[in-house]
Design a binder for these strands. Structure first.
Lengths: 323, 323
DNA sequence: TTGTATGCGTTATCAC
DNA sequence: GTGATAACGCATACAA
């Protein structure tokens, strides 16, 4: 591998001059500049990543990760786990990460006490203060799982596509025809809900003309029973449930069990797949989202502007054979 | 982050002494040793990865990757691409990788001309000479995609599990009952073939008593037609095809198209999924295999013995909505 | 048994 | 406009 030293030697200059050319800092004679750039190309020079890492380490970068306790929703267990694993890896490069998973934390009222070079957060109203503070201080802000105004980068999945994939799976289990009932917890239509449903219906309309999903049942504490249609549907699409045990209720409602397609796969979901109650699930890789949020922050804080923008995690399909 | 220097300062010794303790090289007074270990724990010391990378870079590691031209099988296109991408990344850490994709290469007859610190290879008889040479010279050998005697590590998927997943998908499209016909190219029963079929049948036997897959049809140039049963099967399981266009032949053979489940997803397979001819495929992440083979080699060559053994890539499911 | 010096490749500062 | 040099954290050879 070519080094800066080698290029300097060949060009008959010092490493300082090479460095100035590489970083476009001027103060270099045009002909020397040309010669150096020629050598860079010829030797296919790439800066040594370890050496650069050592330089970055002396910046002593610190970041804050705002999320929620897994009790709020199983999604956060995996998200936080992924972020913490990545934080441990980044620690080996001299980067530190603080985690806030609690609305009670006093940092929320006193953002100035945060001594960090950037923040990642799940967009929740409680964190708006932190976000605004970060934007005012020109610090990078990464939104995780849902988009947010004013953020530097977004890490999450394409919920519409997730809905489309769920539709494809539903068609598989239903033989490409019949009525699908959409089931969801609570009543509020959050982004992850309506984008998935939107994609789901769009895919049915585009590719499965013999299927439809007109009815939506919301439940709280399994009271979904009341709303279920008399006629056995071809499948259920269970959108972002916090509590998967609703599946048992759905399972027992008709003579023949109705196949269930759902999203994500926390522990409870895995068990139900194992039992054959959930036919398939579409996952958004929450652990990867946690990890990616932090690596994006590092990239942004070290001036890699290409880290700004959207980062989509892959959507994976799981059935009982690849839980 | 704590550094060796900080630990040395706190323990009242020099960094040389701390280093000797960390690497268990002896020649340290017991009480100093204890104190240093205590501090390491207390400060949760982790060596800086960039600094270590800089040390590794001066070893000027070189590896050789033996594979085949994509013409031999589409699998190699993705495998090689993944390996080359990783090689480019490793180059930033001062590691160089040579690629051999040709049986004609004269290195195969003269392994001693290889100046490398380890090799990765797809286990093919043509590479046996290289493998034996590497073993004689105590160099790490990584087998990719198929296991091999004498290798230090294996990178690939669990073909039996792949077969089981394919069975699960087949059951989904077939409604959990009916006869499945297994279709495969050529006549030779290579590992990837029989392990997948083995897993496929085992899964049907374990979980889908109303299904079976007794018949296997081998084809060369679409002559499979001759062997297909009169009665329309519930599904086809197309095992490791080099040429996916056989799907069109299968597709047209019966009045109603029979759903096809297959493995892997090179370009040709993606197109057929797009058209709705292939219902689903189980993929072994060939790109990740290429990448992982090289990172494992680096780990082995730098003394991380835990890199020895088996590395399984994830098995992913793809349908037309997540091609 | 212990400490010191050197170098890895890059960045950045400073003197000329 | 240019070059010399220190520093990042670690490993190691060598001196004491």
């Amino acid at each position: 591998m070519a080094t800066i030293k080698e290029i300097a030697a060949r060009a008959g200059v010092s490493i300082g001059t090479v460095d100035r050319v590489l970083h476009d800092r001027g103060h270099v004679a045009p002909e020397k500049r040309e010669e150096i750039l020629r050598l860079v190309k010829e030797l296919n020079y790439r800066p040594n990543a370890s050496a650069q890492g050592l330089i970055i380490a002396r910046k002593k970068l610190r970041f804050a990760f705002f999320s929620l306790d897994p009790e709020a929703h199983p999604f956060f267990r995996e998200l936080n786990a992924g972020a913490k694993k990545e934080a441990e890896r980044l620690r080996q490069y001299g980067v530190e990460v603080e985690f806030y998973e609690d609305f009670e934390d006093r940092v929320l009222e006193d953002p100035d006490s945060l001594k960090v070079d950037g923040v990642a957060m799940v967009p929740l109203p409680q964190f708006d203060g932190i976000r605004d503070w970060a934007i005012r201080n020109a610090l990078p802000v990464v939104a995780v799982s849902t988009r947010m105004d004013g953020c530097t980068a977004f890490v999450g999945c394409d919920y519409r596509q997730a809905g489309r994939i769920a539709a494809g799976l539903t068609a598989m289990v239903a033989g490409g025809k019949g009525d699908v009932v959409i089931v969801s917890e609570g009543t509020e239509e959050i982004t992850s809900f309506y984008e998935r449903v939107d994609g789901f219906r769009a895919e049915l309309a585009d590719r499965y003309p013999r299927m439809k999903a007109d009815q939506t049942c919301f439940f709280i504490d399994h009271t979904v029973k009341l709303d279920l249609p008399k006629k056995r549907p071809a499948a259920f699409y269970l959108v972002n449930p916090g509590d998967y045990s609703i599946c048992r209720t759905l399972q027992e409602h008709y003579q023949n069990p109705v196949p269930i397609i759902t999203n994500d796969r926390p522990e409870e979901c895995r068990r139900l797949m194992e039992e054959g109650i959930i036919a398939a699930t579409v996952c958004q890789q929450p652990e990867q989202q946690g990890s990616l949020a932090l690596t994006s922050l590092v990239d942004l804080a070290t001036g890699r502007r290409e880290a700004a923008g959207d980062h989509y995690t892959e959507l994976s399909i799981h059935i009982r054979q690849n839980i």
